[in-house]
Write a protein that binds this DNA or RNA. Structure first.
Lengths: 232, 232
DNA sequence: CGGCTCATTGATAACTCTCAACGCAGGTGG
DNA sequence: CCACCTGCGTTGAGAGTTATCAATGAGCCG
């Protein structure tokens, strides 16, 4: 019923490095779990006790200062990996943005399994390297871009990363219309802005005809090139 | 003469996962290279053609916008790894800040060697995971901290990361006095600020008695706790 | 139909950037 | 040996962008 073999992310997650027998072993040490929006799987600062693969949904990785400021440091989509294998302390919390299904492993079980399966570790290494590159590109946005550039970049990135899930068949650069998995406050926390600034930029992009906002949580990209020009 | 066995970072770099014979093979595919300050080893956007270990010196990883804004997305110290193994395009340039010695490998040679040596890949995976955590923590600084918090955080981090190299014997949290491997402009590019703002914050920290600036490139931390309080 | 949360809009303030001038140190050449 | 030049850093004045504070508005659920 919930075996790895029928898993919808079977061929995209790091599990794709495993053969049928290995998958059976992995299946035995993992378990499925559903998360409601706002529910956390891992908390900032705790010892790393579990890792997971995302099957469905969108989750945020976030960290904050003592006085309550928050920064979202990553967004995780289906087939992606969560957690900190091989010891250490988790440096950021993991919280569901939408209702999510994840495949959870105890960290020690996963560690042991991974060390015996170099192909799995290799897959994880490739993903981690890719994620590090993506994160570094995001630093350029945080450090050097203006509010309008930030918001435009955010919408374009989201449109691209959401489209495999939304499954627009036309082979475009990204979904034209999509549902935001973020509240305005969460968008602000991704971009290092305030909620008011985000809201004003949304309004401005709409009034310039680059996007439409059918509802709070929905966005239509009307002029992708224009938006890309705004993104800097 | 320049064999791996006598390498000063032999026991700290990813090479520490290898035995004597393996090291001999690795030695054969790598070569030493010296870089002058300002000299680049890898350029943003080019295909990944080489990877390296840092033996000595400090290097920056940087990326920029088309209109010339720059963001330093990482700083690399001795024993650390540089480059993007397993294909792909380099998303950031690598440039020496101080005179540096590196141990360079062609990416394809390194890839082939790594795939045959899971313990090396494991070490690289652990490092990459650690670096990703560090990078994500830096995002909090870029997105949510004020100029004074940024500069104070920067000085504390630098003091800690420079101290194993500077080799203060007293087991402290970091070096009390150290030489900046950065110009003011480069500090601004790390923190997402302008050179003037960085300069003003330095002056302010000095006038408040938290640091001293014996020369342009030198810093003494007079009040570590006070600095930590400024760091937020 | 309230009462709630979340988002938008407006007015003002604060912070950082921009532009500009000056200062300091190191190197070069008279 | 000193004068000058050049690059980097500091300091100042003013402008611009974004944050803050406050009020209004829209959607949702009981």
């Amino acid at each position: 019923m919930s075996s790895c073999e029928q898993c919808v992310v079977r061929n995209r997650a790091i599990c794709s490095s495993l053969d049928k027998d290995e998958l059976g072993v992995l299946n035995a040490i993992g378990r499925r779990r559903t998360l409601q929006p706002g529910e956390s799987l891992i908390w900032e600062g705790e010892d790393s006790v579990l890792v997971a693969n995302v099957i469905e949904g969108v989750l945020k990785l976030s960290t904050g200062t003592e006085d309550g400021r928050e920064q979202i440091v990553g967004v995780v989509y289906p087939s992606e990996f969560i957690g900190r294998p091989f010891g250490g302390t988790t440096s950021h919390g993991v919280t569901a943005l939408t209702e999510s299904r994840v495949c959870v492993f105890s960290r020690s079980d996963f560690d042991a399994f991974a060390r015996e399966h170099p192909s799995l570790e290799h897959k994880l290494l490739e993903r981690t390297l890719t994620e590090l590159d993506r994160t570094r590109r995001w630093m350029l946005l945080l450090g050097r871009k203006s509010a309008s550039e930030k918001v435009a970049s955010f919408l374009l990135e989201l449109s691209e990363r959401l489209s495999p899930a939304n499954c627009e068949i036309h082979f475009e650069t990204g979904a034209r219309r999509f549902t935001l998995p973020f509240s305005r406050q969460q968008i602000a926390d991704v971009l290092g802005l305030t909620i008011e600034t985000v809201s004003r930029q949304f309004t401005r992009l709409k009034s310039e005809g680059l996007i439409d906002l059918p509802s709070r949580r929905e966005v239509t990209i009307l002029d992708r090139e224009g938006l890309a020009a705004e993104a800097g």
